[in-house]
């Protein structure tokens, strides 16, 4: 990897298209994410937010389009991407899921250590040290020997964030990280994410938390029916949307009738 001059793009996705069973869900979406930037992805249900974000770490393979990481082409739909390159990309792009998806048979510590051992080939002590550090950072060090079933949703999601951080990714993708969590537990997850964003992590977050997006995201992109309707400064787009469709959506989410 070449060193990146300040201000260049951490992630650039161009003309991403994706169909399921002959039906096109994403109609060519492009986005450039600057290093250290946090982009919120907003849009109604079924608009393709999850599909888009999953395309970015190849959990779905785009039918069309390219993905660059720090100026390096890591995916191009016209060529077959070998499994090795897919993994190389995923190592650099972390993912946090709506339903946490922690490994149920592993403790919190093991969840965070597993990929360090297998993918980074770290020694056990190094992996454990790093995992403890990360769990400390998300405020869960004292729960590190618990299994996911013994943790609350908010705690599980913070473990998942630590697990994702363990590979030192260049970008982290979040797909509705707080939707499956009780409202009063969300704030601790959002706080961790805000700290990450402020710490300079490049992030993309699908979210329905408008207040959080306004406060913690630099830009917001609005998807509707598989199209990018608008992208711009988060506070601007979400506070006083000029687009009627976005205004209605944002108002509905904020409970304004």
């Amino acid at each position: 990897m070449t060193t990146t001059p300040e201000g260049t793009l951490a992630l650039s996705a161009q003309q991403i298209r994706k169909s399921f069973g002959g039906k096109e869900i994403l109609h060519g979406i492009s986005v450039d994410v600057k290093k250290g930037e946090h982009i919120a992805i907003i849009g109604p249900s079924g608009s393709g937010k999850s599909t888009f974000i999953r395309c970015l770490n190849l959990l779905e393979t785009p039918d069309h389009g390219t993905i660059d990481l720090h100026g390096e082409r890591v995916f191009d739909a016209v060529e077959k991407t070998p499994a090795k390159s897919v993994r190389a990309l995923r190592k650099r792009v972390g993912m946090v899921f709506q339903s946490f998806n922690l490994f149920a048979t592993h403790t919190a510590l093991e969840n965070v250590s597993l990929a360090q051992r297998l993918v980074l080939e770290r020694s056990k002590t190094d992996a454990v040290d790093r995992s403890e550090e990360l769990l400390e950072r998300v405020g869960l060090k004292k729960h590190m020997h618990k299994h996911p079933s013994q943790l609350s949703g908010g705690q599980q999601q913070r473990v998942a964030i630590a697990r994702s951080l363990a590979l030192d990714p260049e970008v982290i993708l979040f797909d509705e990280p707080t939707s499956a969590i009780d409202p009063e537990m969300r704030v601790e997850v959002l706080r961790v994410m805000k700290e990450l964003a402020e710490g300079g992590m490049t992030m993309m977050t699908v979210t329905h938390e408008i207040e959080f997006a306004k406060e913690a995201a630099d830009r917001a992109m609005f998807l509707a029916d598989g199209e990018l309707l608008e992208i711009g400064p988060a506070a601007e787009i979400l506070t006083d949307p000029s687009n009627e469709r976005i205004r209605r959506f944002v108002n509905a989410l904020s409970g304004v009738i």
Partner: peptide, 17 residues
């Protein structure tokens, strides 16, 4: 759960792993 396999994929684990 499918999600656990996806999470493992997202962590760049190989199929065998």
């Amino acid at each position: 759960p499918r999600g656990q396999v996806e999470a493992a994929q997202a962590l760049a684990l190989t199929k065998k792993q």
